[in-house]
Amino acid sequence: MTAKRLRAIALLAFSMVFLLAWAFPIIWSVLNSLKTDSDVLAYPPKLVFSPTLEAYRDVLFGSGSILPNLLSSAIISVGTTIVTMLMAVPAAYALARLRFRGKKFAGFYVLATQMLPPVGIIIPYFLVLRNIGWIDTYQGIILIYLSFSLPFAIWLLVSYFEDIPFEMEEAAYLDGASRLKTLWLIIIPQVRGGIAVTVVFVFLNAWNEFLFAVVLSGNTVRPVTVAMFNFVSVEQTLWAKLAAVSVLAMLPVVVLGVVAQKHIVKGLTVGAVKGGGRR
């Protein structure tokens, strides 16, 4: 019995180590964001210190404020989410519920587009956007974000549309409602939850994107993931400020992640059940 107990304690300790390992870098960034630079650089690392909001005040309202970058991230993410949903909801409904020739191929195509490495998309798109003067524009970056947000949103929504009972639609048709009206008034309200989950994940992926953003950004469009580099240069690192910016960049996605907690496994594995997929 003691051996069993000892084993239980060992397992508990082992699992605690992993919990700590996952949470620590995030907690540590939060702590560092509340320090002065000299406290960040202290050796041994300080766990006890007098907290200050100075770093936040500097990065938000000081010179070189990152408020425009947070706004930039927000515009990109909200814009991508709106355009994606406007296109993905009808497409997902058609793929889930309607009968037409080539449906299997259409579904496969949506999945297959995700095989293309992002770097293979950005090289030609950089050339195209440069020619039409769309580098450093919101329309340019939102357009290219559709390459990953659309397939993801379509597949996630298909799984929700497939759960609605067919009888609902039948009843509407028998009442003489048009297809569009049925979709809008009967079906869409049924998948409100699924749409909300999809919105969360599309927003999250757009907020976190980096490769396209780093190539296409400039003075106008500069999301916070790219602007973060202002705080680490060859000459010096602005430690506390970098921590504060990291925390600000993490905040929205952590909140969304915890809110959408129950759906996260589904959101992460969508599409994979049927074929391939990424992200």
Binding site: L19, W22, A23, P25, I26, W28, S29, N32, V40, L204, W207, N208, E209, F210, T225, V226, M228, V232, T237, W239, L242, A243, S246, A249, M250, V253, V254, L256, G257, V258, Q261, I264, L268
Partner: peptide, 20 residues
């Protein structure tokens, strides 16, 4: 806690690890 790392931007994760 398992949710925390996976929702973060890999760019932010990289930056945190590189520095702190």
């Amino acid at each position: 806690i398992a949710i925390l790392p996976v929702v973060l931007s890999p760019a932010v994760v990289g930056m945190i690890w590189r520095t702190f």
